[in-house]
Design a protein around this nucleic acid. Structure first.
Lengths: 235, 235
DNA sequence: GATTTTCAATCAAACGATTGATTGAAAAAA
DNA sequence: TTTTTTCAATCAATCGTTTGATTGAAAATC
């Protein structure tokens, strides 16, 4: 298995307990750490191997080189995001197409809650966000992978939820852009954590700080939904 | 002048028309381009020199090495942002402390407009944002530079504006976080442009697309301000 | 059951290429 | 002339990759 496995293939491979599976897991974990912190170009294959307690040659052996390991990381991330978002993604489209505005809004806020908790508290979230922003967004090919694997199916469902909650048509450009605005708030407040900590006078983001963040984003997104609902007839 | 000049010193240096000033300008311009696209570690001094049509050694001569050129880039960025934000920054704090809620809101939306236009249309905005995300946010020392030079004075004034517009006290944590949420929307929608274009079916962000982006962010931020104004007495 | 063969996996060592930095002389500017 | 700036050449260090040898357990053969 020298080629990049799909997220689902990757899940099976990494779940097994063969020696090679452990090596792969360790290498991906290590690569994610270093790529996220020092960037792809700034990371040496030697440091990846050292952190993973593996031999340098194992990178070429298992992933066909540094670039292949990067692709595996992207698929691993796609897998992780898929897990976090399963609440939304596992529902069939037809399942959420007839929710009441109130239920749709509840689902949206539920999802927001999950995303904030994940981005703010998960150890890997920082690495994942850092890695994607630093490396993935600037490579058209990898943007494609990310878009079709995660982004589009997720956004399709969120768009339906937004449509149900606001009464706007699903194809509305306004709706689509509003969702970007929503996600932007979530990600930026995690991304700019060094600035947030300094500005707020916080030492770290603990339960209290998490609650404050959730509170304001809750309000902001509720206000946005209210505004989008104006002048539209709820079914 | 081998050490990193402050933004103001930098402005004078770069404005002069001596040969060395031109070389410095070219090197910073080139470095910004490469750092923004390939990251600091991913950029070789040779490619910087080649793009700038300068000799490799001139980097060491003028900036004391690659790291010094990076510092100069940060200061150059601070200078640029300072220019864009001058509408807000150049006002004394005492000058905006007594604005009416309506005037304050107008000022906020004016500022938003400027920021969106800059981030979405300025050639250098992509490089600046990419550079800061990739390199600056992960270096405590450079976060400090950025924070004290640009972020804090800017945020102080925006916070006062928000306070005047909503009736909330300036020291309010909610207000501070709300501003992060606002900025997050602006930056993310530029940052994730590859995803935005794909999602919206756009070829590029021209005048029409810019207007759409402004419209939705306008609505979102207005809604946020409305919500923050609830239950507070406007002076 | 005992022996041999096969093969995925790991290892230390070395490869050529490229990195940032440095040098001292030539060129340009003052 | 004196100082500043540019240049090609060179440096040690590090880069990602490749190599050939070695391991240990499964598969095949006897």
């Amino acid at each position: 298995m020298t080629n990049s496995p799909t997220p689902n293939e990757l899940r099976e491979v990494l779940a097994s307990d063969t020696p090679s599976a452990k090596t792969k897991r360790d290498l991906i974990e290590s690569a994610l750490y270093h790529f996220g912190h020092e960037g792809y170009a700034g990371t040496s294959t030697r440091s990846i191997a050292q952190t993973a307690k593996a031999n340098i040659a194992s990178i070429a052996y298992h992933f066909d080189g540094k670039a292949g390991l990067k692709r595996a990381c992207i698929n691993f991330i796609a897998m992780s995001i898929g897990d976090v978002m399963s609440v939304v993604l596992n529902r069939k489209l037809s399942d959420i197409e007839h929710l009441s505005p109130e239920d749709a809004r509840t689902k949206i806020l539920e999802m927001i809650d999950r995303m904030i908790t994940f981005t703010q508290t998960n150890k890997r979230a920082e690495l994942v966000i850092g890695f994607m922003l630093k490396e993935v967004l600037h490579s058209p090919e990898e943007v494609d992978t990310l878009y079709h694997l995660i982004f589009e199916p997720l956004m399709d469902r969120v768009t339906v939820l937004f449509s149900r909650a606001t009464g706007q048509p699903v194809a509305s450009d306004e709706l689509k852009l509003a969702i970007f605005a929503m996600i932007g708030q979530l990600l930026y407040i995690r991304l700019a954590r060094p600035l947030v900590l300094k500005r707020m006078g916080w030492q770290a983001v603990g339960p209290d700080e998490l609650a404050q963040i959730k509170s304001i984003l809750h309000r902001s997104i509720n206000a946005l939904l209210d505004d989008l609902s104006k002048g539209s007839n709820h079914a």
